[in-house]
Design a protein around this nucleic acid. Structure first.
Lengths: 350, 350
DNA sequence: GACTGGTAAGCAAACGTTTACCGCATATGA
DNA sequence: TCATATGCGGTAAACGTTTGCTTACCAGTC
């Protein structure tokens, strides 16, 4: 069943059917109605591949993420998809799972399907791959790590604002030994977060030498907390490079009977949906995934709709903000964080 | 840059280029090498829309889920994608967000993009929509709720096995008052889980009248726990229709100072990745998302590869199993679950 | 009545592949 | 030497749309 079948039955030409379906205003309302009647009767749906072939637009946007199972992304994917249906686009979702081969295959898939644009949310991409895309004039949106080249849209994240709020919140609660668990240091975003932390600490005259490297996953947070135990001056508060790390800290603290927030204050980063439901609910720096997705999508849409290939480099800004929940508390005077609870437990347990 | 350009430069016909690229064995190795050389030099990638148009296969599988932000799905999507890249397929991911309009648009998008098959993981679909797909002979995979019709693959979940294990585990821990928080009762899967619970309870002579309806989300679990407070005989253990509900219970228990598992044992269902990292780690019934995704994908692949449109109805089985973690404990003799801790707290707080 | 201008519909080319079919060259057997 | 078989490469049709150009029709003008 194709457009010709419709044309035959509606006794018009295929051109008219095409125009009617695409709601071209010059077609006579009578004819259009006749066409639509047949279309509905037969349950006809236009073939997008044929459309794409002749029009040169696939109406597909690529979305490259690092891994779909990272709770940071589902919200983004969902928002992206919502916008896609609103605008008659499809999403080609691809994940690199931190594997260069997969990154390469992602790019290949994008090109083979002739996507109209790609949002790259994977914090880094090899130049040769990037060039494949650039060479074909595919509109590109990066977050944070895009090369500073014409025709590439960058979404810049203002890490400092939220992290400063977090640090100052802890300082106001009398914390002096504030630790930071970084992300994997090969990631630009990890580096940015860490230097925001250092800046914020220095600003208020605190030392930022209490740092250990995590991996943006829960086990990294767990291990980091164990690292702190070995230290002479244990932190009374810890800021994490993302929420998953913080959740790992919460979990390890539970195992070690370190009470959160009484014995240790914890702050995360990202504000994933789950942060509201941890135990205790996690105070964290919000970086809105919805905003991020919206910005990326609309940037792509804008690039696609402009006729002349954009030459200036576009930037968008995304701010971050502390959201207070229940994982921080006043530092206990003169004390360090750590295993204090075990004793109390002993008195309590029957 | 197209196949003709390659042909011109390699001084062969487009047919030969096509054959070389598709690794048809009859083409002379010399020629093939020449073709590949040009292909690599120019960075040529075949246009999948043109391929799809002439071959009649899009090499796209549809994947309809209810919402991507539900932590049950990312694992499935990831597995699906991994299999897709292995087999040179793409995924058209679509979510219904529990909206009939979106369900309809999902189906339309699948048809317009001419997917080679659809996995429907959304626990139910209207008949008229279903017929659009069936009419076009699109291979379909359902979980649990597929109509019992020829050509439709169903993955049947053995809820009873896992739920029986859960119930018997609780019974062995001396629990008598075991509650169940259902999912939304318009879902077939919710009904199946509930009746598995009833069966398992009846089998061992326990009454299964302690049930309240949840919504498969955290807030549903929280509300359900509050419901129990109003009861004369409060449960000492609660089984949840999914893990998100259980996480809600954990969270509400934390707010009410109900200790898990000391005061209340909690068991979830699904075993999402997160279940290992709740506080305390959640004992739950595992229904492997990876297995589910693999089964669905391979079923689709099989349907696509067979030449004659399958006429017999295919079924696959997926079993469920209890995985023990730390959210269950011995029932306290003669006691009911509930707010006992608050008193102790009072003695502890300075 | 002939011409012009405007509007709406139709014709046919084009998009980038795959593949059925054909033809040519070489090998094979008589 | 010639007829036939074999194998490989090329020609061109086909896939289902969109859209530039042409045509047809009608009304208005002189």
């Amino acid at each position: 069943m194709d457009i010709r079948e419709i044309a035959r039955r509606a006794k018009v030409s295929t051109a008219t059917v095409s125009r009617a379906i695409n709601r071209v205003p010059t077609v006579d309302p009578q004819l259009a109605k006749r066409v639509w009647k047949v279309v509905d009767e037969l349950g006809y749906f236009p073939n997008t591949q044929a459309r794409a072939l002749v029009s040169g637009r696939s109406r597909i946007f690529g979305l490259i993420v690092s891994e779909i199972t990272n709770p940071f992304f589902p919200e983004i994917v969902q928002t992206f998809e919502n916008l896609a249906v609103e605008n008659n686009y499809e999403i080609l979702l691809t994940s690199t799972v931190h594997d260069p081969k997969r990154m390469e295959s992602s790019v290949r898939r994008m090109i083979e399907r002739r996507v109209d644009g790609v949002a790259i949310l994977t914090f880094g991409m090899e130049d040769t791959l990037l060039n494949h895309l650039r060479f074909r004039n595919v509109p590109l949106v990066f977050v944070d790590v895009g090369p500073n080249a014409p025709g590439i849209v960058n979404i810049r994240i203002d890490y400092l604002n939220g992290i400063r709020q977090a640090v100052q919140h802890l300082a106001a609660l009398r914390h002096k030994h504030i630790a930071f668990i970084t992300g994997p240091m090969r990631l630009k975003s990890s580096i940015s977060r860490r230097s925001a932390f250092q800046t914020a600490m220095t600003e208020i005259g605190l030392s930022s030498n209490l740092m250990v490297e995590g991996n943006h996953r829960m086990d990294g947070g767990m291990r980091a907390l164990m690292e702190f135990d070995k230290l002479r001056y244990r932190p009374t508060a810890v800021l994490c490079s993302n929420d998953m790390t913080a959740i790992g800290v919460l979990r390890e603290a539970y195992d070690q009977d370190i009470r959160i927030p009484d014995d240790l204050s914890v702050i995360g980063f990202d504000d994933i949906r789950l942060a509201e439901f941890t135990i205790p609910p996690l105070t964290t720096v919000q970086m809105s995934q919805m905003e991020l997705a919206k910005t990326a999508f609309h940037a792509l849409l804008r690039e696609v709709q402009r006729e002349s290939p954009s030459t200036e480099r576009t930037e968008y800004d995304l701010s971050t903000n502390l959201v207070l929940r229940r994982s921080t508390a006043m530092a206990r005077i003169g004390s360090q964080g750590g295993k204090v609870r075990k004793v109390e437990m002993a008195t309590r347990t029957p």
